[in-house]
C-alpha cells in the first residue's frame, strides 16, 4: 500500500514530464527561462514567474522569521505560564485557518491600506502578498521552533538555571545554539509552504507577467501561473508551460525535503552525542 503511493508520486512526475514534453520537443525548453511571456509573440518565458515566486517567498520569510522566533521564545520561555499555553493553542489554531480566508480578508482590508498609504497604484503587489504569506507560514515555523527549543536536554537547562541565568541569557547562550538544527528545518519548511502557496499570491500579488522592478509592483508566481493558465486551451504551448512550472515546484520540494533529511540526521547525531548526560528531575 505504502509502496503504491510512492509509485503514484513517481507516476505524477512522469505524467508532468510527458505533458510538458512538447516544450522540449520543439526545442523551446531553454526558451522557457527567458524573461518575456507573450503568447501572441510565441514567447513563453516563465522566468518572471520564477523570480516572482522567489521574491515573494524570500520577502515572506524575512517578515515571518522575527515574528516566529519571537513567538516561539515567548511560548517556550519568556511569557508567564498560562499565556504560554494560550499562545501555543492559538498558534496551532492559526495553522488551521483556511488560506482563502486570509486572502479574502487581505483583499478587502490590507489592499486598500496599501493603496492609500504605502505603495499607491492598485495595492495588489508582491509586498502585499508577502506580508500575508508571512502570517500564513508563521504557525508552521513557530510550531517547529517550539519543538526544537523543547528538545534541548533538560539537564542543560537545569545547569544553566541553577547558575542563575536570566531567561534571555538562557535563550541566547543555551537554547538557540542547541536548537539550531531544528530552527533551520523550521525555516526550510516555512520556505516550502511559502513557495507552494497558491491562493495568497493569486489573490494579492496582482498576477502581471512583466518582470517586476520593485516589490511594490505586481507580480506572478509559478503557482498562480498554473491556476491562471489552466483555463486556456489544452493543447496550446501556453498550456504546456504550466507543467514546466509544476515540475520546477516539485523539484524544489524534493530539494527542500532532502535537505531537511540531511540536516535532521546531522541534528540527531548531535543529539546522540548530547544524550550522554541523561535527564535529572529537580
Amino acid at each position: 500500500m505504502a509502496m503504491g503511493s510512492g509509485l503514484l508520486l513517481i507516476a505524477i512526475l512522469c505524467m508532468m514530464a510527458v505533458l510538458g514534453w512538447p516544450l522540449v520537443e520543439n526545442g523551446r525548453f531553454f526558451a522557457l527561462f527567458s524573461t518575456t511571456w507573450s503568447p501572441h509573440a510565441q514567447a513563453y518565458g516563465i522566468l518572471p514567474m520564477i523570480l516572482g515566486s522567489l521574491r515573494i517567498t524570500v520577502l515572506a520569510l524575512l517578515f515571518s522569521l522575527p515574528m516566529s522566533i519571537g513567538t516561539a521564545c515567548l511560548a517556550e520561555l519568556l511569557a508567564p505560564r498560562p499565556l504560554r499555553r494560550l499562545l501555543l493553542v492559538t498558534i496551532r489554531f492559526m495553522a488551521g485557518v483556511p488560506t482563502v480566508v486570509y486572502g479574502f480578508v487581505a483583499v478587502f482590508l490590507l489592499v486598500p491600506l496599501m493603496r492609500e498609504y504605502l505603495i499607491f497604484g492598485s495595492g495588489f503587489s508582491i509586498l502585499t502578498a508577502s506580508l500575508v504569506l508571512a502570517v500564513l507560514i508563521a504557525p508552521t515555523m513557530i510550531i517547529f521552533f517550539v519543538n526544537g527549543l523543547q528538545s534541548v536536554p533538560r539537564s542543560y537547562c537545569h545547569a544553566v538555571d541553577s547558575l542563575g541565568a536570566r531567561p534571555m541569557q538562557k535563550l541566547i547562550y543555551l537554547l538557540l545554539p542547541q536548537a539550531y538544527p531544528s530552527l533551520l528545518i523550521g525555516v526550510i519548511l516555512g520556505l516550502g509552504r511559502a513557495m507552494g502557496d497558491t491562493l495568497i499570491s493569486l489573490m494579492l500579488a496582482g498576477n502581471s507577467v512583466a518582470l517586476p522592478e520593485s516589490v511594490a509592483e505586481s507580480g506572478r508566481t509559478l503557482t498562480a501561473h498554473i491556476a491562471l493558465v489552466i483555463a486556456a486551451d489544452f493543447s496550446s504551448m501556453e498550456f504546456t508551460t504550466i507543467f514546466a512550472c509544476g515540475l520546477i515546484l516539485s523539484l524544489f520540494t524534493v530539494c527542500l525535503i532532502v535537505s531537511i533529511r540531511l540536516l535532521d540526521r546531522f541534528g540527531t547525531r548531535g543529539a546522540q552525542h548530547r544524550e550522554m548526560s541523561t535527564e535529572s528531575r529537580p
Binding site: A2, S5, L9, I12, M15, M16, L189, G192, M195, G196, D197, T198, T223, I226, A227, I230, I242, F243, G246, L249, S250, T253, V254, L256, I257, I260, R261
Partner: peptide
C-alpha cells in the same frame, strides 16, 4: 511521504 506532504497543493491539483 515527506515529499508528497511538501508538494504544493496546486501541483497535486495539476496532477
Amino acid at each position: 511521504f515527506d515529499i508528497i506532504a511538501g508538494l504544493p497543493s496546486i501541483v497535486i491539483g495539476l496532477a
